[in-house]
Write a protein that binds this DNA or RNA. Structure first.
Lengths: 197, 197
DNA sequence: CGTTGCATGCAACGTCGAGTTGCTTTAAGG
DNA sequence: CCTTAAAGCAACTCGACGTTGCATGCAACG
């Protein structure tokens, strides 16, 4: 069994174009209408593709979402490297704030949080965040190397503590963190981390 | 016009029972299935009520949700008063952590965040959080009175900074904050706040 | 350059839940 | 006990979902 010659699958040209268009359309629809009210027919219309194509290639809405998010969140982000932890973190924090304030990304974050229950979408959040943390980690590592932070500082924990308040204030009470608040978040964590050892 | 005698509305007995049953059923359905996949027919079935009743009394799913949440989130929470900020905040933080870890409340939080866009649901989040902050504020005020915190400390900001990392780590990367992490969040903010002045 | 057959487009269909409507039944308010 | 607001019930329309059969197009291979 399986001895048959590889069945000549078609990955180039049109198929690739369709895949890309559908991925884009899925993310667009997701950020526009949120996870609820995300219909395959809508996505098909946005992508300029027939709905049967989507049904045949992805089957369920969840599978499509998972695939689109995996393909879409691979884009890299610029991590600041200014020479000091304080300004690095401040820049990162402002960047995070601006990101989560944009309605587009808001819906995406909420969708990731919502998907934590679903079988198919459960690992999307962790996967996404693993990428973000991996990218941000150097900030802390450089700081440790410079002697600005204790050597046993855990990068991920520190980042969570800086970014957490911003995140919460936006997604919880719905406040818009101003620059002063952002800087305060950075300072408090730096002071607290240094004095903790 | 409007001179007619008050039209004898019927709020007692059956109507009240129906209202309560529907409210309960709505919250149950919400926490069970999330905001997506929240159908009026399902709610009607859970409440043991005919769906036409719901359609006639509330009209849209959003209006029903708004009403049910407003009625449901009025329940009070116990705010710790142990004699020191540190243990007060630690107790509060653990309480928050346990709350957001329960799938039931998870869905509710996500629903509140999701509703930020909708016209009808937009003010539910802020309203809910205003209640929580009002309840938690005394912890900080007592601390200031005791001289444990600088007099110009803003209670809401401090609470955001303590709770934020917990919230983020649960709803973002999906980590489960252990007691050590929770305590660390409290300590860092207290140290940072004291040294900041 | 021609052939093959995989992937897509297209159209029609069955199914199901949402939401509506007219009428009947129950029970609150007097 | 009477009136009538409010709830129940049944049937209906409508639209979106998802499926299926067939025609078309184009990538892969000779």
């Amino acid at each position: 069994m399986e001895g048959s010659p590889s069945p000549r699958r078609r990955t180039g040209g049109r198929s690739a174009r369709v895949t890309q268009a559908v991925h884009r359309a899925t993310l667009a629809a997701l950020t526009a209408k949120g996870l609820a009210g995300l219909s395959i027919e809508d996505i098909a219309a946005r992508a300029g593709v027939n709905k049967t194509t989507i049904y045949r290639r992805w089957g369920t809405r969840e599978a499509l979402l998972a695939d689109a998010l995996n393909a879409g969140t691979t884009r890299q982000i610029a991590i600041p490297d200014t020479g000091s932890v304080r300004s690095d973190l401040a820049a990162l924090a402002r960047q995070v704030r601006d990101t989560i304030l944009a309605p587009t990304n808001r819906n995406l974050m909420v969708a990731l949080a919502t998907g934590a229950g679903h079988e198919t979408l459960a690992d999307l959040g962790p996967r996404y965040w693993a990428g973000r943390f991996a990218a941000s980690r150097p900030i802390v590592e450089r700081a440790i190397a410079r002697g600005e932070l204790p050597p046993d500082t855990d990068p991920d924990t520190l980042i969570i503590q800086v970014v957490g308040p911003l995140w919460f204030s936006v997604f919880g009470p719905g406040r818009v963190p101003d620059d002063a608040f952002v800087d305060r978040c950075v300072d408090i964590v730096l002071i607290g981390t240094s004095h903790h050892a």
